[in-house]
Amino acid sequence: MEKRITFKGVWLPLALIAPQIVITAVFFFYPAGQAIWQSLFIPDPFGLSMTYVGLGNFEFLLSDPFYRASFVTTAIFSTLVTVVSMGVALFLAVLADRLIKGSGTYRTLLIWPYAVAPAVAGVLWLFMFNTRVGVITWYLGQLGYDWNHVLNENEAMGLVVVASAWGRISYNFLFFLAGLQAIPRSVIEAAAIDGARFWTRFRTIVFPLLSPITFFLLVVNVVYAFFETFGVIHTITSGGPQQATTILVYKVYSDGFVGQDLGSSAAQSVILLALVALLTVIQFKFIERRVHY
């Protein structure tokens, strides 16, 4: 959709758009270009010179078992975070939608963890499951279960997944509830009169009508799990134990800043860039489709 031409002028619009273009160029395109450029070099140990290695960094990365493991970790982690946060949110949204009175109150009660930073969520969950003082750890111990996410890889993964999903439920809940409330009541009533019970109605009518929102949330949650959960992982496990919770973003950070391996970190940035670009394309296709609805 294009607007009719309304104002004349060349310098004014250029001046108006300049701030955003300058900031985008300096803090986005230049660093992104730098990442691509640096990914082709290996700096010497003293950081004084750079050796051109072509795609060497990438070849090294793809054959690096740690990096490949990080890929798998990321895949498992983001799948779990997405499924848990969307599943719980959908369940709560369906319940809230069934209530005529009170759904607004529940919405208010459920909405605000959206405002809690992932890093803070990490601290809260770390506190509950802390190996020495955690309440849940203690009660689990009473039940005879010895919780120790500092040593146990699966427990570490479970903890970062739950902490990441926890803060995300309210966001997904809002969208699911909005989507459910947008479904015309007459459609559901017609199905009820046709004799469809709740579960049948949900499976055959409600869920298909929710599919645009579900798909949208899927993409958004995967992006969230990829990047914004950095705070959760950094506060709870710092990527451990034995890199069991080192997702790709965390590895970019730890190789680049902690390990000072700039070439490898840059190459990892480029791979991440490509991944996000892919998700963006999917997202755009989706936006276009929605516009046509």
Binding site: F28, Y30, A32, Q34, Q38, V252, A266, A277
Partner: peptide, 14 residues
């Protein structure tokens, strides 16, 4: 959709 986390090292240098 490209968050700062992706281009973190070079952006830091800038």
């Amino acid at each position: 959709m490209l968050p700062v986390e992706v281009r973190i090292v070079p952006t830091y240098e800038v």
